[in-house]
Write a protein that binds this DNA or RNA. Structure first.
Length: 930
RNA sequence: GCGGAUGUGGUGAAAUUGGUAGACACGCUAGACUUAGGAUCUAGUGCCGAGAGGUGUGUGGGUUCGAGUCCCUCCAUCCGCACCA
């Protein structure tokens, strides 16, 4: 009887749906286990074979956990707000909700064909009001919270107001608050606070709120008409669309993620994630330890604050450099320098990020004409402006030590400024060629630091500046606050309205604030975001709502919680359900979210813990990042100026243009000539120069899958040809799940053949038949060897070797003959996570209750079946394996040695010499040293 | 420049704690069978060599009885960050 995969798969997919086989309840007494896939953005292109790679792996693992006694949650949903649907809406006038709905249906259809064990009763969509009600609710909580550095957690803003009413804000607590607070505020007393206007009070509180409206430099993309987060900008171009991005000072909603910098960094240590992702996050957070030092200004009030990681080189300072955007620039510029400074500042402001990055090596700068005083030597230090200093990092000002910093060195050489050596290098070094930047050597020319090592000097200087009140130890982070407002339509409305310039929250019981209808999805004529087009859209019919919407990452920062309780309209998820499931045990998804989604989700999780919504600090305990599946593009070669196409093997003799050709017209690099002519009208008269073998061979290249390269392989087509079970196993068989690899269907027949072979084990004589007698020892051995390997492979997420081990098992069982029920039944359970359809069919034929396979206990390994009386020893001479000898396991080392010595091969390989030494590891290896 | 990862047959890859390198599969070669199929089965297949044998995991070195695996050097490829003070 033939393996009719199409019938079988259709039958069981229908069965699972009707019987809700994969529905999950919290009532189980089994321990919970939460497996989560990064939910997809439902794009118009549908799924390609790369998408399911991670879904298949997590599905196999979820099923395995189910078989081993866990109550497994494995949900799926859609990250359904986003730019592409909106761009499409702008072009076509179609409501983004409509295209999103259509795309979701297409995704669902494709996903259903692959036999996943998702509990679809828990499906969520970030764009549905019932979902974004809670995204808005979280925003409200963030707005109503501030980060208390004393308790190191978020607390209610009301407590801060109470503190202001009773004690005001002292200079001391202001400096304690400094981490992450950008805007300058002056201390005030409790009696002053109560005299402030509501507007002024709100303005002060805005410096503390975790969701806040603040002026900051943002990445502005004129083509998209919106603000982008740093991780949405790639090489100065927008990630989506590749449009230029410039810096612009804007009043924007932001998230004070910087308050959580240290906790985000510390939390990484306990996560079971790949090192590469953890390192990328550490890098992004960019903690550096150093000191802030104040240089009193000469002839001006106040001082200039710099951040340095090398306070040990303070005596080597020969000038100070300000970022062109620094607020002191104007004040410090002397009249003689004013023209030069104005020119410089305006050129560097107009230089986009991209240009700045493009020529890192060009040195530019200008002197302000002013000086500061060195805190220790009291010497005057010139103050310069240079665009190598970034306004957003540290204090936007640096102390330049040209002798021990490469950029300062270049700047000093270029402008002929002094270079003062303060460290004697620990190795030969020529200061005429560059700076000595190593943190080794002895400090010289530095008064009380002389003779110390760099590390000692750093500590000593930090205490010295603190003692004298010149500055303090400071930890600086590269991480910036996350911009939260987008000038876009298709996103969550921010639940805020304005009285004048002051924002107020919409009461939580009035959520969700629904996305209003608009006539067009473009900005208004006055430059307002699309929401400005909504008519009669005002709070209490009076106050203007906030017109920007939330960024794409808002909804995805907490979605893992909503699956636990997707229909709750009283809270984002009930505390009972949150505490039952806990955080995600296994998270599966792409590594490209390392600094975006994964950082924001961790931030919100920590915040939700601080306010008592969740009992854990991290959202995802263990994470596996699947590799990207690349496309294999095929090319034909057209002779320039003709309709003649040369086969790849002969193209060197001609001047040709390579043209992408649809991979469905190519089989094993051979082009379907008729299909090609029919593909496009312009090729209908094409002529071909063929290989000597009479075929046209295409060239190929490995590239990202994309429509424009005609290299997209959809799963549907392969499911139709080979079945979902084959595709599932083939995707796993390709290689380690975390590795990127080009897609290639060449090997799929091997996996398909394996399933047919498995099927044949039960259909030896044409009809279904199993042997009810007790299996032989050999059969038990084959089975238990496989049980052990399959379990080990699953436990270490080695799905590719799992498939291999199934193949070996089926090959051996085919060879051994004897279709014993006891063996094949166990094998069927073992295989079911990988190939759920075929195994359900077999399970039913074996006489079990349909659908009960999902609940069956996973086979246990019994080592007794693997005990051997003999072992085939590989015998090496000087580490080279020469021959094998089968010996009883019970032999002692001496007996093994005697047995080896008595072999004729041993005499041959000794070549008349006496063995120096025998290395004998019983049950493993024999090595003879000559 | 900094950080992370990866280099093994014609191809995808395996070798979990240092112990028979290349399992499993594709491809290829030869053959069988046939209702001619994207079917099934048999044998072979790292490289050099007729064979005995030699040689072989990016390069060069080291530790070890024994190294794909551990240590050092260098090279290549990919990814992330990048004038970060």
């Amino acid at each position: 009887m033939e393996y009719r995969f199409q019938e079988i798969e259709k039958k069981w997919q229908h069965f699972w749906k009707i019987n809700q086989t994969y529905r999950v309840e919290e009532t189980s007494t089994k321990p919970p286990y939460y497996v989560l896939d990064m939910f997809p953005y439902p794009s118009g292109a549908g799924l390609h074979v790369g998408h399911p790679l991670g879904y298949i792996a997590s599905d196999i693992f979820a099923r395995y956990k189910k078989h081993t006694g866990f109550n497994v949650l494995h949900p799926m949903g859609y990250d359904s707000f986003g730019l592409p649907a909106e761009q499409y809406a702008i072009q076509t006038g179609q409501h983004p909700a409509k295209t999103t709905q259509e795309n979701i249906e297409r995704y669902r259809e494709q996903l259903d064909k692959l036999g996943f064990n998702y509990d679809w009763s828990r499906e969520i969509r970030t764009s549905s009001p019932a979902y974004y009600k809670w995204t808005q609710w979280i925003f409200i909580q963030l707005f109503n919270s501030w980060y208390n550095p004393k308790t190191n957690k978020a607390e209610s803003i009301d407590a801060l107001i109470k503190e202001f009413e009773q004690q005001g804000l002292s200079a001391a607590s202001l400096s304690a608050l400094h981490g992450g607070i950008e805007t300058e505020i002056t201390p005030f007393s409790a009696s002053e606070w109560v005299t402030f206007t509501a507007q002024k009070q709100q303005g002060i509180l805005m410096n503390f709120r975790l969701a806040y409206l603040g002026e900051s430099y943002v990445n502005w993309c004129p083509a998209l008409g919106t603000v982008l987060a740093n991780d949405e900008v790639v090489n100065g171009l927008s990630e989506r669309g590749g449009h230029p991005v410039e810096r612009k000072l804007l009043k924007q909603w932001s998230m004070r993620i910087t308050a959580y910098a240290q906790r985000l960094l510390d939390g990484l240590d306990h996560l079971d994630w790949f090192d590469s992702i953890k390192e990328t996050q550490r890098n992004w957070i960019g903690r550096s330890e150093g000191a802030s030092v104040h240089f009193p200004l000469l002839n001006h009030e106040g001082s200039m604050e710099v951040f340095t990681t090398r306070p040990d080189t303070l005596f080597g300072v020969s000038f100070l450099t300000l970022a062109p955007e620094h607020e002191l620039v104007n004040q410090l510029t002397t009249d003689e320098q004013r023209a030069a400074v104005a020119t410089y500042v305006s050129t560097s402001k107009n230089r986009s990020e991209r240009e700045r990055m493009a020529d890192v090596n060009t040195i530019s700068g200008v002197f302000t004409g002013s000086y500061a005083t060195h805190p220790f030597t009291k010497e005057p230090i010139p103050i310069w402006i240079g665009d190598y200093v970034l306004v957003g990092y540290g204090t936007g000002a640096v102390m330049a030590v040209p002798a021990h910093d490469e950029r300062d060195y270049k700047f000093a050489t270029h402008f002929s400024l002094a270079i003062k050596q303060v460290i004697r290098p620990s190795a030969a070094h020529d200061f005429n060629l560059g700076a000595w930047t190593e943190k080794t050597g002895t400090i010289i020319n530095s008064d009380f630091l002389d003779g110390l090592s760099v590390l000692e000097g750093v500590q000593r200087m930090i205490s010295a500046i603190a003692e004298h009140g010149y500055g303090s130890k400071r930890i600086n982070y590269r991480l910036r606050d996350a911009v939260f407002g987008r000038q876009r339509y298709w996103g969550e409305p921010i639940p805020v309205y304005f009285k004048g310039d002051t924002p107020y929250l919409i009461p939580a019981d009035q959520l969700p604030l629904d996305l209003p209808e608009v006539d067009k999805y473009l900005p208004t004529e006055d430059g307002d975001p699309p929401l400005g087009r909504a008519t009669h859209w005002k709070f209490n019919e009076v106050y203007e709502y906030e017109k920007s919407t939330m960024p794409g990452w808002a909804g995805s920062s907490w979605y893992f919680l909503r699956y636990l309780d997707p229909t709750n309209d009283q809270c984002l998820a009930s505390p009972e359900k949150i505490s039952y499931w806990g955080n995600v045990d296994l998270y599966m998804g792409g590594a490209e979210h390392a600094t975006g989604h994964l950082l924001y989700a961790r931030f919100w999780c920590k915040f939700l813990r601080d306010i008592g919504v969740v009992p854990f600090d991290e959202p995802f305990k263990k994470m596996i990042n699947q590799g990207m599946i690349l496309g294999r593009s095929s090319f034909v070669y057209r002779v320039v100026g003709q309709q003649t196409f040369v086969s790849a093997g002969m193209k060197d003799g001609y001047e040709t243009t390579a043209i992408h050709v649809d991979i469905s017209l190519v089989n094993n690099d051979e082009l379907d000539l008729e299909g090609f002519k029919a593909w496009r009208s312009e090729y209908k008269d094409a002529t071909f120069l063929l290989e000597p073998s009479g075929v046209y061979l295409c060239g190929y290249e490995v590239e990202k899958m994309s429509k424009s390269k005609y290299n997209v392989q959809t799963p549907d087509e392969l499911v139709d040809r080979f079945g979902a079970d084959t595709l599932r196993m083939y995707e796993m068989f390709l290689g380690p799940v975390e590795q990127s690899k080009p897609w290639d269907t060449k090997g799929i027949t091997g996996v398909h053949g394996f399933l047919k072979k498995y099927w044949r084990l039960f259909h030896l004589n044409g009809s279904f038949e199993v042997n009810e007698t007790t299996p032989t020892k050999d059969h038990f051995k084959i089975l238990h060897k496989t049980i052990r390997k399959i379990r080990e492979d699953l436990d270490r997420f080695s799905f590719n070797t799992g498939v291999s081990n199934f193949m070996i098992c089926v090959n051996e069982l085919t060879e051994a003959k004897g279709n014993y029920r006891e063996i094949l039944e166990q094998l069927t359970i073992l295989l079911s996570p990988y190939a759920p359809h075929i195994t359900e069919e077999i399970w039913e034929k074996l006489g079990h209750e349909p659908g009960s396979l999902y609940e069956a206990a996973y086979p246990d390994f019994n080592p007794d079946y693997l005990i051997e009386s003999d072992y085939e020893y590989p015998v090496s001479f000087n580490g080279k394996m020469r021959f094998k000898v089968t010996l009883p396991m019970v032999l002692t080392i001496e007996e093994i040695q005697a047995a080896i010595l008595s072999k004729p091969e041993t005499v041959k390989w000794l070549e008349g010499k006496a063995p120096k030494k025998f290395i004998i590891v019983p049950g493993k290896i024999v090595n003879v040293v000559i």
